[in-house]
Each structure stands twice: as C-alpha cells, then as structure tokens.
Design a protein around this nucleic acid. Structure first.
Lengths: 331, 331
DNA sequence: TTGAAAGCGCTAACAT
DNA sequence: ATGTTAGCGCTTTCAA
C-alpha cells in the first residue's frame, strides 16, 4: 500500500496525496477530504511507518483495571509492577472508571503504545477482547475468555468453603448481595453460591444488584433486614463493609444478628470492626502471573493451553461470622 | 542527520548502516557494534521516523503519581480523568511507587508515548523536570518548579489557619510529624508550620521523618507521647490516622489528651472516629486544572507566567482537635 | 491549488 | 560480510 494507490483511487497525483498528509493547509479542503476518505477506506499507512511501528519496542506494558480507587487492585497492581520491573519493563495503568465505553476507547488508544496488555475485570465482550488480542499480547485477569490466556481465582472452591463455614455455624438460609450484572466475577460468584447452597441443602436468596462500593453495601443492608436473612455473602469486601455499616445503623449487630462474608480479602477487611470473614485470593501473585505471561508472549512465547490458569482461594475467617442467635422476625 | 553521515563517520557504506539497523544478523557483530556506537554518538534517528514521531498524536496524556495506593490521589485522578475525557483525551497513570529511580525510568519510557505529562509530587530534581519539559508539554502538580507551569495548594494559608485554630483552643506547643525528606510537600508544610508558630508565638517541635502511611503515623504516636505534646500536625491524613490509632493503643485519647490535625482531607478523614480535623485542598480541581493546562500546551498554547497557580486551601474542623485537658507529664 | 519531474533517504538486488 | 547500483516510497521544487 503506497501513496500511489491512494492517488490513483482518489484521482489525484501522488504529490497531492503527500501534501494532504504532511501539509493539510496546502490542499483544498475538498480534495484533502476525498483523499482522507480513500486512504481510510483502503486502510493506507505509509510503509516506512508500518516498518517502524513493527520494529518498535516500548518496553512498556499496560494494566487495565476497572477502577483505580478500588483497593482490591492495590495488591494486583503491586504484583504486576514487580513482575514488570523484574523483566525490565515499565507498567502503565489504564483506569476504565467502571465504564465499558471508557474502557473500549482507552484500550484502543493504549494498544499502539505498549508491548502488551493485562486486562483485569473487563466489561467488554469476549469478541472485543479477542480482537484486541490479535493486535498485541493480551492476558485477561479475573475472567475467562476462550482463545486468550486467562488467569482466574478458584471462586467455586472458596465459596464452597464459605458456605460450609456458615452451614457449620448453623445457618440454613444465605443471601448473596450481587454486584454489577455486566461483571464476569459477579456471575461466577453467584453461580458458585447457588451450587454450593444446592449441594449443602441451604436456601439461597439473591439480592441486588448493588453498586460494588461501600454505599452499595449500605443499600444492601436494608434488603438483608427486609428479607430477614441471618447470613449474607457480599459481592466484594467493600459491599460487605457497607453491609456491616448499614446494619449497624439499622440497629442490627454483626455477627450476633447477621453473619457477613466478603470477597477478595482487601487490606481494610482486617482493619474494620468486626474483622471481616472473606474469600481471599493471592492477589499479588495474580498480578505477577498475568504480567509474566504477557511479557513471555511479547518475547515470542507461544500459548497453546485452552484452559485458564486457576489460582487457589482460601476462606479467611475473622469475626463477622457466628452461630445465629435467636430466630428473628421476617417480613 | 542521515545514514550517510553515520556511514562516513563509521567508515562503511550506507547500505551497511541500513543493514545494521534493519537486519542485525547480516552484519558482522564488530561492524554492527561500531555503527551503533557512531549512531548513538551522533544522536542519529531516521528522518522518516523523526518526521513521523513529530507528526504523531496519540490523544493520550499521562498522570504520574508517587503511589497509586495513596487515597489522596483518588480525587486528583478523578478530576484529571474528567478533564482529559472532556478534551477527548485518554489518560494513563504512571505509578512511581515512592521511588525516584522508578519515577525517572518510568517518565523516560512514558514521554515518547504520550502528548503531555502531569507530574504529581515528583521526587526528581528541578533540572530533571525541566529537561522533560523540553521534550513535551509538562505540568507539575503539588510542587513548584521555576520554568515549568506548576499548580500548588496554598499551604501557608491552610497551615496558618490550623495553627490559629489550635492556638485558639489553648495549645502553646505544636508538633509536626514529618513525611519523606525528599518530598517538596513536606518541606513546604514544615516551613509553613514553623512560620505560623513563630508569628503566633507558639513552640514548634519537628518529629520524624516518618513513612507517609498509617504505619508511619503509628510510629509517630510514640514520639508524640515521648515529647509530651498536646497537639500535632501530621504530614498527611494517613499519618494523622496512624497517630490516632497509635495513641489509642498507648492509652492516649484524641482529642482529650492530644489534638491531631492532618493534611489533604482524604475520604477516610470523615469516616474514622474521631473525625479528623485537616487542612484540605480542592484536589479534584487541582487535577482538572493541571490536565487542562497540559492539553492547552499540547495544542500550542504558550505559557508565559513564571508564577505557579496557587489554589486555596481550607481548614476542615472535625472532632480530632480540642482544648487541652490537664497538663500532662513530659519526658 | 495542482501535476510533472527531480531529489532525498533508505532498502533490496546483485556481485564479490 | 560488504560495496555498488538500481529502485522504491515519499517530499519538494518548479511551472502553470
């Protein structure tokens, strides 16, 4: 693809095409517009630039996350940064701000700038992600996309442990305070809850969806009380913390009246009162593994395995779960 | 600068130089090495690439921060992201991980990728920052660097208010729990404290330095008790929160025994008990202003003003400050 | 503003 | 492995 192709198609000389790109002012706007249209249609890019772009190595990767302010990402970021630094790479962060529109544009803009991409908790479709993966090395984190290397936590096992824990304490009915419906993690967690409850012959109740922050949890607390639940698993630790705060405001005590279990084991889970029982994953290793994989791909490693890398989870028991007290009135 | 210059200097033909760059294997390693040395010495870059690079627009800017996990940056990031989005730009985050070495390499790698750079709370030297500013549009945030557009909070005024507040409550001796010594913000804050104390005839005591996190504050609490202080200004809110926690552990009650004032007014300042009195700045506007300025520079705006943009601060009085109780024993 | 033609920087083909 | 030479893609010059 040369400027001559564009010139012929647009019915002008090569020099005019050249001018249209390098000195826009020197070409009549009508001519310039038609040239740009033709160039776009033909997908023209200068050979020299193509060669340069192909040869280009930025020694930089990007980690895309759905919300920088969400503490669950801190250990992931740290792990990813360490792995990148160890390989001599610099890591940039791309914040999707909980919006699939922003995420899409951001990835589109970022991918020509970096040597590889780790996409965490994406809201995009599998197809979109696979398309991105055709352009440059991509590893998907906290989600499974067939055709792309993925790293996911073993949610089923962790949830199973949590439900067993609640069952052992004597709970027979468990709520799930759902997160964003577009979230792959939410789907996986809810499915795991339902399956575990089914196996253990415990009733499950889906609440929500709620926004995946403390405020969302405060809203969920209301629903927990309305449904007269004695135990609830929250979409994540922030929601769980919100539930505890919300319940306190409603005069309901955790864990005496309601047991609360979170997800992720963020830093704050150990700081609040009562300490939060939660299903945790080794987040730092998750970030590390993902980054090591993109860098390996960038360096020419081939990737055959159709299965995602599953990292183990564990139930961290703190003070927010207990044997239910007296039965409470339901509404 | 062409390959012919390099060829002449290296004593080989132009085609050999060309090969040395595009097909390294086809040139003897000795020749290739000498060619690369000459090219580096002459600062050779292909004209075509130079032209392309100059014309290149990525519609992307980077916001460099010293630590992504520090909540003081959340509103700054949000403000910056909104300003970037409003101008049709995508914003990437560059995390210096509290290290000047990482910051330096990161900026070096990032600057060829983006159209502009906002550097927050940098640890680099003024000279280094000015050098970066010669390559592409740069705005410095939370620091003043002469020769570069800077946006800084009015620390002196905020500190003056805080010291007046403590003086009015009856305090006559105030501690300052210092942050990182390499930090411009720490220098500015300590200077402001000393000046305000001097004017109001209050004794000042410098403690630290401490790490600018909750843990650093916990260490500072020990020093506060040892020095028998009744009031302390902390380098930032995290340190202030750490001090409150540390004091509680030592059996010292805030604000009854010790008044604590923070800096930044982060989200958590309003969540903890007691609520933290703190010197706050409009962080979101700070981020917005900085990004709007880089984008303006990128679009060709000229910048004449040698003075930094100073944004007002305000004292947010909550529950962590009070009239000192009985005089306490000092050690 | 445009095209024809010369020129520039770089690469490929060919020869050794 | 290297130089010579031809050629390619793009830009600039010159003329209209």
């Amino acid at each position: 693809m040369t400027i001559y192709d564009v010139a012929r198609e647009a019915g002008v000389s090569a020099s005019t095409v050249s001018r249209a790109f390098s000195r826009p002012g020197r070409v009549s706007s009508r001519t310039a517009r038609s040239i740009r249209e033709v160039a776009d249609r033909l997908g023209y890019r200068s050979e020299t630039v193509e060669r340069f772009e192909r040869a280009r190595r930025t020694d930089t990767i990007a980690l895309a996350i759905s919300d920088v302010a969400n503490p669950v990402y801190f250990p992931i970021i740290r792990g990813a940064e360490h792995a990148a630094a160890a390989a001599g790479f610099t890591m940039l962060l791309a914040d999707a701000q909980e919006s699939d529109e922003i995420e899409r544009q951001m990835l589109e803009r970022t991918l020509p700038l970096v040597d590889g991409l780790v996409i965490t908790s994406s809201r995009l479709s599998d197809t979109d992600l696979r398309t991105i993966g055709k352009t440059l090395p991509v590893v998907v984190l906290n989600r499974h996309v067939s055709g792309l290397p993925s790293v996911v936590p073993d949610t089923a096992r962790g949830v199973r442990r949590a439900v067993e824990h609640l069952a052992t304490l004597g709970h027979t009915r468990i709520g799930y305070a759902a997160g964003p419906e577009a979230s792959w993690a939410d789907g996986t967690r809810w499915r795991a809850v339902r399956e575990a409850c089914h196996e253990l012959e415990i009733a499950d109740v889906r609440l929500g969806p709620f926004r995946p922050f403390v405020e969302g949890g405060e809203a969920a607390a209301q629903a927990v009380v309305e449904r007269g639940l004695g135990a609830v698993l929250a979409y994540n630790d922030l929601v769980a913390i919100g539930i505890i705060r919300g319940l306190a405001r409603l005069g309901v005590e955790v864990p005496r009246d309601v047991s609360v279990v979170g997800f992720d084991d963020i830093f704050a889970a150990d700081l609040i009162t009562p300490g939060l029982t939660t299903v945790g994953a080794p987040l730092e290793s998750l970030g590390q593994a993902a980054v090591r994989n993109v860098i390996a791909l960038h360096r020419g490693a081939t990737w055959e395995r159709p299965d995602p890398v599953v990292v183990p989870t564990r139930l961290v028991v703190r003070e927010s779960t207990a044997t239910p007290a007296a039965p409470r009135a339901t509404s």
